[in-house]
């Protein structure tokens, strides 16, 4: 075998020899196994990944019959992101009719629950119009974004200013206050959008602000589940483990800081979510094969431990996708096939 053409996690092209490719796959799975205290991929799985990466085709795909549900987070933002000036409803139609979406997501350009609060009526009426003209299931999506509740952008003292000063008690109190504000906003916005007809609510990039972010989301999910037993609730993550910004917050007696996906999903299920979306960070200093072996190891353990559908986050910089604005199809298609077939995903 000649050298394999692949990429680094930042998208740069590299070539790996057979032994280098094997080594990267082995080291990637070992890294995940050590961090998550989960089993590494077995020989057969590593061999399957080896084949995916050594095949010279520019594009690869899953085997017939292995297709999974394809969802799109923040869909209404991404057409405008490339400078195509469509209305949000047109953007949704593009994803529905042109890009093979199995679900849609309606969202506000700020993509956080807090700023939607004062303009909720506008959001509701546009969502209602979108629901009349689209056929496939529609989420309303936003980020918990607990950082937006801290001064100067929010009402709470900023823990990120208090902590470096050693004011740990004050920082923790501020974080607990942030959780209360965020839960209220998430429940209010999600309720309004569900009352307007959305099929589901997607809490996207949960945990971005650490354990407070994750805890607030779990509490909001719990309230919404009691309020709307039929509502589809998806919890998508920001990163592979919950950063401990507070460090002592618990949900159902479990400390949330430091949890990896196979443990996160247990709490997400307990709170009452319908779908869980793990996000495994891409390391830009390592190769795509290293990153995929690692992401598949974490995600497989999570799928095996989950009773609800798992839709892995596979956008820029997560799930083995390089951290680059325009990810190349050789890298994306390999990540897609590998994650679906090795981790046994229910969707992306």
């Amino acid at each position: 075998m000649g050298k394999t053409y692949t990429r680094m996690g930042d998208g740069s092209v590299i070539e790996l020899s057979e032994s280098e490719l094997k080594r990267d796959l082995e080291e990637g799975t070992r890294d995940a196994a050590e961090r998550g205290r989960i089993p590494p991929l077995c020989e057969d799985e590593l061999s399957y990944l080896f084949d995916i990466y050594s095949i010279p085709y520019r594009f690869v795909s899953v085997d017939r019959g292995n297709e999974v549900v394809l969802t799109y987070d923040a869909a209404t933002l991404k057409i405008r992101r490339v400078g195509v000036l469509t209305h949000r409803i047109q953007s949704l139609q593009i994803y529905e009719k042109l890009l093979g979406a199995d679900t849609l997501e309606f969202d506000h350009v700020d993509y956080s629950f807090k700023p939607v609060k004062p303009i909720i009526a506008y959001e509701q009426t546009e969502l209602e119009q979108a629901l009349l003209v689209t056929t496939i299931p529609m989420f309303y999506g936003a980020m918990p974004n607990l950082g937006s509740y801290t001064q100067p952008d929010g009402p709470c003292l900023n823990p990120m200013e208090l902590l470096p000063m050693g004011k740990i008690t004050e920082a923790r109190a501020a974080q607990e206050e942030m959780v209360e504000h965020a839960v209220k906003d998430m429940v209010n916005v999600a309720s309004a959008m569900y009352e307007s007809g959305a099929d589901g609510i997607n809490f996207d990039t949960t945990g971005a602000a650490g354990d407070t972010d994750f805890l607030a989301t779990l509490r909001a999910v719990e309230i919404l589940r009691k309020k709307y037993p039929q509502m589809c609730i998806e919890v998508g993550m920001a990163g592979e483990f919950i950063l401990g910004m507070h460090g002592e917050l618990t949900y159902d007696g479990v400390r949330v800081a430091g949890l990896y996906p196979h443990k996160q999903v247990e709490l997400v299920e307990k709170a009452g979510a319908t779908i869980y979306g793990p996000a495994i960070n891409t390391n830009t200093d390592e190769s795509c094969p290293w990153n995929i072996a690692r992401a598949a190891t974490f995600t497989k353990a999570c799928v095996e431990n989950s009773h609800i559908p798992v839709h892995a986050d596979m956008g820029m910089g997560v799930g083995g996708i390089p951290v680059v604005d325009q990810p190349p199809v050789d890298a994306v298609s390999r990540a897609s096939k590998a994650m679906v077939e090795i981790a046994r995903l229910d969707g992306l």
Binding site: P164, G244, M245
Partner: peptide
């Protein structure tokens, strides 16, 4: 970086 220690503890270590 592995999620085995949290920011408040890191701050105390830094102090």
């Amino acid at each position: 970086g592995r999620g085995e220690l949290f920011l408040p503890e890191l701050i105390l270590s830094a102090e």
